[in-house]
Nucleic acid binder design. Sequence first.
DNA 1: TATGTTTTGGAACGTGCAGTCCAGAACGGT
DNA 2: ACCGTTCTGGACTGCACGTTCCAAAACATA
Lengths: 193, 193
Amino acid sequence: MLLFWRKGYEATTMNDLVEELGLGRGSIYAAYGDKHRLFVLALGRYLGHQTTLLDSALGDTGPVLPHLRDVIDRLLAADAACTGAGCFSVNSIAELLPNDAEVAELARRSLQFAEDAFTTQLERAARSGELSPAIGPRDAAHLLVTTVQGLQIMRKADPDPARAAACLDSLFTLLAPTTAPTAPTPAPAYATP
Amino acid sequence: MLLFWRKGYEATTMNDLVEELGLGRGSIYAAYGDKHRLFVLALGRYLGHQTTLLDSALGDTGPVLPHLRDVIDRLLAADAACTGAGCFSVNSIAELLPNDAEVAELARRSLQFAEDAFTTQLERAARSGELSPAIGPRDAAHLLVTTVQGLQIMRKADPDPARAAACLDSLFTLLAPTTAPTAPTPAPAYATP
DNA sequence: TATGTTTTGGAACGTGCAGTCCAGAACGGT
DNA sequence: ACCGTTCTGGACTGCACGTTCCAAAACATA
């Protein structure tokens, strides 16, 4: 499925896929239906993998923001394995929406899941004072998701990982509360009221 | 050129373009060369238009952040004219990079221009105390450009303009310096031992 | 109006596409 | 070992693609 990822839907031919999968055309059609279905399946797998990564990585103890940052770094690194191709999901949204309802539904669900997961984490961050009071958890999560999407675009134009890291640094700095009095936040021992 | 914008490069056929432009095939090839050159020309025009919009809108007096916000709103609105198609530049980056050097060069230049323009503005903002001291003007500009790219992706998945506006609100709130003594901090007091 | 030149746009071309088909290989039950 | 069933994959099909070509229309000059 790397081809769909690297070249997009339209630019990938069935011949390419035959070569990549090592199967005959007939077998591919028998197993997956047509080209579009195969694409949707591939995208679904990719999103499932990303979702799993997110789901398993986000816990409910410890400092939130550094952990969140780490998870996002890992997501970006996973995409970077496919050098220069960016994020399969972002590429698909850009290429096929708003003309492909099936892909739209997949993408929407995945984005919603990410935003919800981030919101849960950031609610915890807000409770423990790790999140700037200037912004609510849900808004912060939405901004975070949006910026990560943007990062995936920017990386295609400039693959230097340092740029992406710097951008995330900036955002996470802004998301943290103004670091005047309680600089290191040693223990997030928060009480349940 | 709306077709390239709406459907992308690969999905747009020469037949489509003949119909859209109202010219014969021969005329198109005589005037513009091949399909790819035509695409590059169209993208160049689009980027030129965006650049002009940016260039003419950014002044050197008055409050920076609200004005910047307004300019970005206008850029988004210009793209929204082509309902649901998002941003031609973002779509092209996602579809054709890293396999198209010509488009890559165009996109890079345009992104660089936007970042530079934002940086100039944010330097002024920093001088007048409008920018949070937590972030430098260049980093803020880079983050801003990145988030706008992300917004263009998010809008394709969820075209509700309110979502994009809320996202920009969040970012600009974070970019502003902490508003005085932060009155409404309902911070659930966590103990620093 | 007559003539040399440019422009137009539809017909035609070769290629490569997505999708189908089927002979034979691989497999499994007995 | 036999044979009914499933699976495999290369040959094939019709079609639509990007591109080229050229007769005729439009224009410019005198």
